[in-house]
Design a binder for these strands. Structure first.
Length: 269
DNA sequence: GCGACAG
DNA sequence: ATCTTGTCGC
């Protein structure tokens, strides 16, 4: 009977940023699209192995959006594809500079970034490039999200592509907190483990905290995006980690930054 | 009531 | 997210 729940708080918050009840509508859209998420392996390829007469995973994509600090309405979205068969060599990259009007609101990142990324994917698909990604890594969470539908899942459903969510920070959900996870990682029993299952107080497994490199104390937060199981997602992430951040994400990040700077200098007066 | 809150 | 060079160490 107390009408003051989290949803309403979000709506109040929304009006400060995106107009009346915007967040409520966004949450409805998320709940709707979430019904289409597939949380098991759903693709024709297999993980790379010595002998396999099946199609193998080879082209792994990564996406990122960079924003200019001096002009927060200016952004650059990037899509890169790396070749798993050739030491993660870059085989495709595409960038688009545009103005952003949608603000960043925690829990609603997709409404800010997904349209840009969908555009990049559609553009690539229309060229019939042989490098179209078999799986896409996204800088943002998948199931690890207040409503179980973060950017990686959102993009996966819209593009109908297997996606993996990669968070560099934990988004608090279901009793999981940064300090709590930090203590888990430092617990004696987990000292040497590189994977910590993120089980919330509800019992649901939201993803894993992963030490992607031996030298990295700070974990990566991996979750299912769409059309892939958590186990497979973890394996793909491990295969692409030269440094803490997996190469597809890292390359997209580096290149979108660089592209944005170049674009700004080009139109500087 | 206050704080927390992916990028 | 963004501002940013050098620097400490394997």
């Amino acid at each position: 009977m107390e009408g003051v729940n989290e949803k309403e708080n979000e709506e109040v918050e929304a009006q400060k940023h995106s107009g009346p009840s915007e967040l409520g509508k966004w949450a409805e859209i998320q709940d709707m699209l979430k019904k289409r998420v597939i949380t098991e392996d759903d693709f024709p390829w297999r993980l790379p192995s010595l002998q396999s007469q099946h199609q193998q995973l080879r082209y792994v994509g990564g996406v990122d959006v960079s924003v200019s600090k001096e002009d927060p309405s200016m952004a650059c979205g990037s899509l890169v594809v790396l070749d798993l068969h050739h030491a993660l060599r870059l085989v495709y990259q595409c960038h688009t500079v545009l103005t952003l009007d949608v603000p960043y609101v925690p829990g609603f990142l997709a409404f800010r970034e997904a349209p840009i990324l969908v555009h990049l994917l559609e553009k690539m698909k229309s060229t019939a490039s042989p490098f179209y990604p078999q799986v896409l890594m996204v800088d943002g969470n998948g199931l690890l999200h207040p409503r179980g539908f973060g950017l990686a899942s959102h993009l996966g459903v819209l593009a109908n592509l297997p996606t993996i969510g990669i968070g560099k920070n934990l988004h608090h959900v279901d009793g999981l907190t940064r300090s709590g996870v930090k203590e888990l990682l430092e617990a004696e029993e987990n000292r040497t483990k590189d994977l910590i299952t993120l089980r919330g107080s509800s019992g649901f497994i939201w993803g894993v905290a992963m030490r992607s490199t031996q030298s990295s104390l700070k974990p990566l937060f991996v979750s299912i995006g769409h059309r892939i199981s958590l186990d497979t997602a973890i394996k793909v992430v491990k295969m692409t980690c030269k440094f803490r951040v997996p190469e597809p994400i890292r390359q997209a990040d580096i290149r979108s930054r660089k592209h944005l700077r170049k674009h700004q200098i080009g139109r500087l007066e």
